[in-house]
Design a protein around this nucleic acid. Structure first.
Length: 447
RNA sequence: GGCCCUAUCGUCUAACGGUUAGGACAGCGCCCUUUCACGGCGUAAAUCCGGGUUCGAUUCCCGGUAGGGUCACCA
């Protein structure tokens, strides 16, 4: 069997769209699944609107997603190739040069190239939708080049796909109506017909094609708010495709393994940021530490001006962050808002907060805190909350969990809300915890 | 408007003629942790409508309806 080749042909006239990212993903998955190639082609034949900056952003975006390509080319550098094909089919009278008035510059006379349309009904097989039939008559002798040296999109695409050995064209549903004219061109240049698979569109809330007016559509916007590439890939894969099993969390290798064109959805799918957030939350628990750590360190430096934080605390804090965060930017936000103050700042204690019950005074908590100090003093330090819990749990159960745990937690963090006391102690280490509890006792006595 | 595509909970989807129409996200409720978060359990919520075909249609066919895409000397 011939080697599978898929492609992603973005035109560098805008940011990397989330829909383009998904199309790239599906092409990537299919190619990798079949041990084929996945190539990228910059469709920059519209010189006026294409920029190198966008091209670069698109390439970087795909790299960020780990969607590696096997080759890269630019249509703007292939004019000679298009010209040779144009000359060939003109010689064969399958296309012709037509002198007409320029539409873009009225008054100017130009020689465009038009395809001789055989005006036939045309049916092609779509891997996701089955047979689709068009009457090509309505296309007329459509223009395929502005001039011999200036091929238009459809012509360039067909020549390139042929020259590059593309076997499977997997693209958005918005290209269905482009397919008949591309097939006509294929037949004119004698190219074989690739397999086609037209993907359902990604829709906005109002079920129209997702575009700028609907908010964030560019990949970089999701990267910037702190979504993991793993989560984006995972979500995008399941938006319009399903594995046929209840599994939802997929790594890229797992997606390659599970991917199957037959399970691509026909109907458009609404992009739901809430579900994306859920995927990100799940991935927060499993991404490598190196995906989280730089953000944490930057936040610590910014908020606390700590450039060399206690490594034990950082390590333990990352565990906490993993199941308390949704997007990476939560780290910065939470650090700024004081969520993790307890880890780096001794608390300023409000004795009134120590009281567990309304009719208590802060001083009532003193003997309990002293008992905690006694127990902790002889204990082995650990950064496992469970181990810390076992030191104190039986006492807390005996005296009353609220009676012990609430004042303890408040002395450690000074806050109304925080992680549980065992986790806090495990994070800080027993010596620091002891200092804080002792300090709390002193404050209470002085009040 | 012409052409093309599509139609299961609010959203993503499963069920390729026979199911109490399943799961996930979001929502709601309860439990756990005597704080927050995490977690666990539960609940509500759907086959667009009308005709066929069939013993039997979410499923197959036709027609409506609705939504979407596309109609360049853009890509």
């Amino acid at each position: 069997m011939e080697k599978v080749v898929t492609r992603i042909p973005p035109s560098p006239t805008g940011h990397l769209h989330i829909g383009t990212a998904r199309t790239a993903l599906y092409n990537f998955l299919f190619a990798r699944k079949h041990k084929g190639d996945f190539i990228m082609r910059s469709e920059d034949t519209d010189r006026a609107r294409s920029t190198l900056a966008f091209e670069e952003e698109i390439r970087e975006g795909l790299t960020w997603l780990s969607l590696t390509t096997d080759s890269f080319s630019r249509q703007s550098e292939r004019a000679a190739i298009y010209r040779s094909y144009l000359e060939k089919i003109i010689n064969e009278d399958k296309a012709y040069i037509s002198k007409e008035e320029s539409k873009s510059n009225p008054g100017e006379s130009i020689e465009v190239v038009r395809l001789r349309n055989p005006n036939i009904p045309l049916t092609f097989a779509d891997e996701v939708r089955g047979d689709i039939t068009f009457d090509t008559t309505e296309l007329g002798d459509f223009v395929i080049a502005r001039s011999l040296d200036d091929a238009l999109y459809h012509f360039a695409v067909v020549v390139d796909d042929f020259e590059m050995g593309v076997t499977h064209v997997i693209r958005g549903e918005d290209h269905i109506s482009n397919t008949p004219r591309q097939i006509l061109i294929q037949e004119a240049i004698g190219a074989p017909r690739p397999y086609y698979a037209h993907l359902p569109l990604i829709l906005a809330l109002d079920r129209s094609k997702m575009s700028k007016r609907h908010g964030a559509v560019a990949l970089y916007q999701y990267r910037d708010t702190g979504f993991f590439p793993q989560a984006i890939l995972n979500y995008l894969a399941l938006l319009g495709w399903n594995p046929g099993t209840p599994q939802e969390i997929f790594s890229l290798p797992e997606l390659i393994e599970a991917f199957d064109v037959a399970k691509i959805q026909k109907a458009g799918a609404v992009f739901d940021i809430e579900k994306l957030k859920w995927f990100n939350k799940e991935w927060f628990k499993i991404v490598p530490q190196s995906d989280i750590e730089p953000t944490l360190r930057a936040a610590l430096k910014k908020t606390f001006d700590i450039s060399t934080p206690d490594e034990r605390v950082v390590k333990n804090l990352i565990h906490l962050i993993r199941d308390r965060s949704t997007v990476l930017s939560d780290i910065t936000k939470d650090v700024e808002e004081g969520e993790y103050d307890f880890a780096f700042k001794a608390p300023v204690l409000d004795p009134a907060l120590i009281k567990w019950k309304k009719d208590e005074t802060a001083k009532d908590a003193l003997p309990r805190l002293h008992e905690v100090i006694t127990r902790l003093t002889g204990a082995t330090d650990s950064d496992n909350p469970e181990a810390i819990k076992s030191i104190l749990w039986d006492y807390a159960e005996k005296v009353g969990k609220g009676e012990v745990l609430w004042p303890l937690r408040v002395s450690l963090t000074g806050k109304e809300k925080s992680p549980d006391p065992f986790t806090v102690i495990a994070t800080l280490g027993i010596p620091e915890a002891l200092r804080r509890i002792q300090n709390a006792c002193d404050t209470i006595e002085a009040s």
